[in-house]
Every structure is written in C-alpha cells, then in structure tokens.
C-alpha cells in the first residue's frame, strides 16, 4: 500500500482501524498491553486488600468515604465511556467531525472526573489529615486510586493530542488505529474504576 493510499484513501473501508497491517498489529498489541495492565491493577488491588485494615486509628474507610461524590464520579466516567463508543461508531461510518465532537465530550467528562478526584483527595488531606504517609492503609489507598487517576490523566492527554493533531486533515488509515486504541484504553480505565468503586468504596462503606 503506498503512503498516499494510507493518508488519503480513495475509499474508506468499514474497519479503518484494522485495514493496514500496522493497524492490525496495533490493535492486537494493545489488547496484550491491556492484559499486562490487568495484572498491574490486580497486584495493586491485592496490596490494597492486604492493607485494608491497617488504618492505625480514626481514618477508617467507613469514616472517610462519602458515597455521594463517588457516585457522581462513577456516573461521569461511565458516561464518558459511552460517549467514546459513539465516537468509534462515527469512525466506522467515516463521519469524522461527529467522532471528534464525541471525543471532546469524552474528554470533558473525564476532566470532570479528575476534578472530583482531586477535590476528594484534598478533602481527605485537609479535613482528616489522611495522607499517603499516615498509615499503610493510606499508602495503599492513594496508590491504587492514584494509579487509576494517573491513567485517566494520561488518557485525557492522549485523546486531546489526537483530536488536535488530526482536526485539519480528517480520518485516514494511519490515524484510525490510533484513535481506536486510545478508546480501548479509555474503556479499560472505566472498567478498572468499576472495580475500585466496588472494592474500595462500596466494600469500605458497607463491608
């Protein structure tokens, strides 16, 4: 396939993200990468569960967590996953501008989530003096949730960079796989959050 066919395809195939060998490789490689990420988060969850009771005093999960904020965060992130699905739907229909629009909405929702998380951490630190260093539980909590937050931040920067870079030229066989795997990453982050919501917040409050 010549470079021109990749950058300015005369006809877009139905699955532009998998139309080239590079695209296929990216697609598969990224799934493998997510497999590794799963082990990474599994290790962090394991550590968290092992240190769950090691609060060294007042700042226990029941005492700290407020489910209202966490509920809003969950809604923001779940919705952003849905909007990124819309974006991919428009990619498959070769409607570039709609795809970009839904991705912008995704980013905004993600930013909302991140804002809430920063607020939450600040709240714990200033109101409760519950920090990364105050107990093994504190270390485990901020590490697990913070790793997830770091992933959100990275995903947001990545998607934003793609949106800006390609705004002028539109969809082609070179950038379609990039968009696609960025959206896979975003779903993965969402799934991890569902587990954090359950294991950290729900079980912390009720369990």
């Amino acid at each position: 396939m010549s470079h021109d066919d990749v950058l300015n395809p005369k006809q877009m195939p139905h699955d532009p993200e998998k139309a080239t060998l590079e695209g296929k490789n990216k697609f598969l490689g990224f799934w493998f990468f997510l497999g590794g990420e799963t082990v990474l988060f599994a290790s962090l969850f394991g550590t968290y569960l092992a240190l769950n009771g090691s609060t060294q005093g007042e700042n226990t999960p029941e005492h700290l967590f407020g489910l209202e904020l966490v509920f809003i965060m969950t809604m923001l992130l779940l919705t952003s996953s849905l909007t990124s699905v819309y974006a991919m739907y428009h990619m498959k229909n070769h409607n570039f501008q709609k795809m970009q629009l839904w991705l912008v909405i995704t980013v905004l929702l993600g930013l909302g989530f991140l804002g809430c998380e920063i607020y939450e951490f600040m709240h714990y630190i200033h109101e409760y003096e519950f920090t990364f260093r105050s107990s093994a539980f504190g270390s485990a909590f901020y590490t697990l949730v913070g790793f997830h937050g770091g992933h959100v931040l990275f995903g947001l920067s990545w998607i934003t960079a793609l949106i800006i870079r390609n705004q002028k030229r539109g969809l082609n066989l070179y950038n379609a796989p990039k968009y696609y795997i960025a959206s896979l990453y975003w779903h993965f982050i969402d799934v991890v959050w569902v587990f954090i919501f359950t294991v950290v917040y729900l079980m912390g409050k009720v369990g």
Partner: peptide, 27 residues
C-alpha cells in the same frame, strides 16, 4: 507487571515516605 508494582511500592516507601512495608504504621 507484578514486579513493576512491587518496585513502585518499594520506591514509594524508600523515597516518598509511604508505609507499605513499615510494620510500625501497619505495613
């Protein structure tokens, strides 16, 4: 990835004062 996490915890304990392996703080 398990090693990656182990090394991160070790790094946080040694360089940023966390308490994963500090028994005095429940580690």
């Amino acid at each position: 990835p398990a090693l990656t996490v182990g090394l991160f915890l070790m790094m946080f304990d040694r360089m940023f004062g966390s308490a994963f392996f500090d028994v005095a703080l429940g580690g």
